[in-house]
């Protein structure tokens, strides 16, 4: 069992009693071992990793829980930053991975990953589920490396993101349609975001199905799709769209080649991008993320 949970910034603590490991995997694997073990065909994995923050003294953030479960291996890499380190290759078909994230009120955390998550085929569908709750006044930045749907895989990604009314979040997802030169596997991601229990965003993205493949209405000729959601009170007071069909009078720079920053009906902006490759996808998302900041600052009237 990997054991990279830490507390901080205070002294190390014992693992709380309520923490149990769901995985059938045992042993004290090094941080990257989950990948290796799943790739050796030791059978389908069910893993649940947990990240919880708590308010530390003087308004700091303490990592109350950092529970790895291979292949979801977590490592603290900064005062308020955690990396997923065990995701170089995997999940394999049949694996069911879950990441639970709980950001306590008033705390802040950034979650990243060291490498793309390569989803490979297997005897059954693979799933990745992320449940994240962000409390009052808390903030979460979630920006893992892309998910690559290798040919032949069937993967289901589910994200449930629940925000308190004044929580702030940055959430980026990138999906690559297969490794270089190969056809994409099948993917279905579902993203549900609520703010104070009201729906902010619900999105299914389906990849590698004949209904959407090559459709100029869905991805066109793109090989990657990505989105960055920014949400929080900074996006709540926006110019209300005018009734009628008059063109916007304010200079609008919220769209560019292959990207657009979409002010949502609720307090948030969704940056959406399509691109021929992962590098270009990130560049386009970055442009959109900058536009989203300009929207928050009121420099773009989001009609």
């Amino acid at each position: 069992m990997s054991d990279t949970w830490q507390t901080g910034p205070g002294p190390r603590r014992k693992r709380p009693d309520h923490m149990t490991i769901v995985s059938g995997m045992t042993g004290t694997a090094p941080p990257t071992a989950g990948t290796v073990m799943s790739a050796t065909g030791a059978g389908a994995i069910t893993a649940r990793a947990v990240i919880r923050t708590a308010a530390g003294p003087g308004g700091t953030t303490r990592l109350e829980t950092l529970l790895s479960d291979p292949p979801l291996t977590l490592r603290r890499t900064g005062p308020a930053r955690v990396h997923l380190v065990g995701s170089g290759a995997g999940p394999l078909g049949g694996d069911h991975l879950t990441l639970d994230v709980d950001i306590a009120p008033g705390t802040a955390l950034e979650i990243r990953s060291v490498a793309a998550m390569l989803v490979l085929p297997g005897p059954a569908d693979s799933t990745m589920t992320v449940n994240a709750r962000v409390g009052a006044g808390a903030s979460l930045r979630y920006s893992p490396e892309p998910t690559v749907l290798a040919a032949g895989c069937t993967h289901r990604l589910t994200v449930r993101l629940s925000l308190a009314a004044d929580a702030e979040v940055f959430w980026r997802e990138e999906i690559i349609f297969g490794r270089h030169g190969e056809r994409p596997g099948r993917g279905h991601s579902r993203f549900d975001v609520t703010v104070a229990d009201r729906p902010l965003l619900r999105q299914d993205l389906v990849v590698g199905r004949p209904s959407v493949e090559g459709s100029p209405a869905v991805y066109g000729h793109a090989r990657c799709v990505g989105s960055s959601l920014v949400a929080g009170p900074r996006w709540s007071a926006r110019a209300v769209p005018a009734i009628g069909n008059d063109p916007p009078t304010a200079p609008v720079q919220a769209s560019g080649d292959g990207w657009t920053a979409l002010p949502l009906a609720g307090p948030g902006v969704l940056v959406s991008a399509l691109a021929p490759d992962a590098v270009e996808l990130r560049a386009r998302l970055t442009r959109g993320e900058e536009a989203a900041e300009r929207i928050a600052a009121g420099r773009i009237v989001a009609w």
Partner: peptide
Amino acid sequence: PGLPAHAAPALDLLAEGHRRNPLRLFV
């Protein structure tokens, strides 16, 4: 909440571009 929510990023891009095009025949 569980109803289908299938997104089409290209339709979003097209709609935003169309909205800003003054030479359009359709709403």
